[in-house]
Design a protein around this nucleic acid. Structure first.
Lengths: 169, 169
DNA sequence: GCCCAATAGTCGGAGCTAAAACTATCTGCT
DNA sequence: AGCAGATAGTTTTAGCTCCGACTATTGGGC
């Protein structure tokens, strides 16, 4: 080996490692899994999530949080329950998430006069600012996905995803 | 509000409730989210997961655990690390999951003679039995998904999901 | 044979998630 | 007015997930 390299923090996955992993994976028998939509939906979603995280390294916010900001930004005054349905997560999950966003000064939570149980969520200026930056990351990310899907199938693919969500929910 | 409707005890979600939720959701502005593949991938995956859980109520096992059983059943002697890659989850996640499957008597974990770091995973008879029953649930579930996607687009859709997973990973 | 890097698996910590129980508030019905 | 049931949000509990650190084992180069 020609190891002139000083290698202090050296080891990112080498080509040889990647090749080996791939071979190992290709030897796997997935059985019926190989043809089940649900399974591949899961794998694709995990991969997409990871890819987004990489794209948004500069901003310390998950895809989920980002979707939250977007929904609040687009629908000022939205309540937590409605937000949770639009976002696809439980309302109890939102409580700590929104506390966090509030703590970071990204959103405001005003009590609704007409119904004092509800909150009125909205973005602060800082929130709008961050949303704009995140939107750029997300656009880059989704362009990657678009490139993989291809322009021809994109519309149909998206439509089917929406249909799944709609008809199963 | 012409409510002549005789609703004695309406325990589960009523039609009116469902309609209201739907209206509320349809009023939401998703902004760019509405066209982003990543977001809809997430929503579809969540919906699919829920639907599977409903289909497999009789057996107390999550889709993830089911995939584990299937992969072990199809690839007896597989190691945990390879399994984790095929399954799409971290190897540290598998430790408690496999402990649980072992405790339930569904799998065996033999030490490999040639490399005593590795385990050789395999199904017990009970494991094979459960796998067979779960496969029926999963088949029903995936037939639902198929029905929603439609036979015409199914192949293409699946191919795109695989492509996403492959090219992003 | 001996050391060092790589690898298999486990453990601990932090974060996300949902379900159920709970509090506060509102609405409809009488 | 007053009560029953619905609804908004929080808390608690439990489970899953990853990451990074750790142990045990292996294999290659000297």
């Amino acid at each position: 080996m020609v190891e002139l390299d000083p290698k202090p923090p050296a080891p990112a996955a080498s080509d040889a490692q990647r090749r080996k992993r791939k071979e190992q994976l290709e030897g796997i028998d997935y059985g019926p899994l190989a043809d089940w939509i649900g399974f591949h939906l899961r794998l694709a979603q995990i991969a997409s999530f990871q890819a987004f995280a990489n794209e948004a390294l500069e901003v310390d916010l998950s895809p989920g949080r980002f979707a939250l900001l977007m929904l609040i930004g687009r629908n000022p005054g939205i309540s937590q329950t409605t937000l949770s349905r639009a976002h696809g997560s439980d309302k109890s999950t939102l409580t700590p998430a929104l506390n966090d966003l509030k703590r970071r000064g990204l959103i405001t939570r005003g009590r609704l006069k007409s119904d004092r149980r509800s909150y009125e969520l909205a973005l602060t200026a800082a929130g709008q600012d961050l949303l704009a930056r995140l939107t750029q990351c997300a656009t880059r990310h989704d362009q990657n996905l678009d490139r993989i899907i291809g322009p021809r199938d994109r519309g149909r693919f998206l439509k089917l995803l929406r249909k799944l969500h709609h008809e199963l929910g």
